[in-house]
């Protein structure tokens, strides 16, 4: 009778060198593939720091008429040569419709837009901070952007500015730019933020050129958004 093959009793003792050679072969193959992949296309630094590519995202956005799917990189000019004044810079702002500082910043943003709208595309990302009376909704975002009635002027949690104000009273004029809804705070997370309001200026090709936290945070040079726009984009 033929001897059965493969029974456990046929197995010989483990040779530890086998693991070593298997490990070395695997490391060799993986290293070769990694090196070749990086030689073909190096890693691009993505993040909120100046000089990095800004994090891209797809999210629901409101343009004053309707909600639609917005992809950040769709407004980037990938072929921007660094000089062309044809391409528009991007100002990205993060707010919470219930944040008092964002409420106050509404007027400044109106002024910046009025001054630089021909050379800068404005995008506001509305996040939903996990704070009492900061519950938000698409309707509230619409009202904040459009400066239309939503809620009451009583401090009853209904409306903008921690529910203290009717959104129609937001400082500034109606904002004529795209508002993005970030209900899960995922875009907020990609930008490594811990609070609002926050602003950053991107080159037309999506590279972060100015980050508020770098300039206005601890150890920063204190440069304001308007000065940064003036320095980077030039006269309106």
């Amino acid at each position: 009778m033929a001897r059965r093959r493969g029974a456990s009793s046929d197995l010989t003792k483990n040779n530890e060198e086998t693991l070593l050679w298997a490990g070395l072969t695997t490391a060799g193959v993986v290293s070769l593939v990694v090196i070749a992949s990086l030689a073909l296309a190096p890693i691009v630094s993505i993040g909120p720091e100046e000089g990095n590519r800004a994090p891209d995202f797809v999210a629901d956005a409101y343009n004053g008429g309707s909600w639609y799917e917005f992809r950040m990189s769709d407004i980037w000019d990938w072929d921007w040569d660094g000089n062309s004044s044809e391409s528009k810079w991007i100002l990205i702002q993060f707010i919470d419709t219930d944040c008092p500082y964002c409420w106050e910043e509404g007027d400044e943003m109106s002024q910046y837009h009025s001054q630089w709208k021909d050379r800068v595309t404005f995008v506001t990302v509305s996040v939903h901070l996990n704070i009492p009376n900061h519950e938000s909704s698409k309707s509230e975002i619409e009202a904040f952007r459009d400066r239309t009635s939503f809620g009451t002027d009583d401090n009853d949690g209904d409306g903008c500015n921690s529910g203290r104000d009717d959104c129609v009273n937001r400082p500034g004029t109606p904002h004529q730019w795209t508002y993005v809804d970030d209900p899960s705070n995922s875009i907020f997370g990609q930008w490594e933020l811990s609070g609002t309001p926050f602003t950053a200026i991107l080159q037309p090709d999506g590279i972060v050129a100015w980050n508020k936290l770098k300039h206005q945070g601890q150890g920063g040079d204190g440069e304001e958004i308007s000065s940064a726009l003036q320095r980077l984009v030039g006269d309106s």
Partner: peptide
């Protein structure tokens, strides 16, 4: 993918180099 197939490759290479080792099953 590289990490996952790397792990698979290692296990397969171990089997390939000594298919009758005690660790085979």
């Amino acid at each position: 993918g590289i990490a996952s197939f790397g792990a698979i490759f290692f296990v397969l290479m171990t089997l390939y180099l000594d298919q009758n080792a005690k660790r085979t099953p």
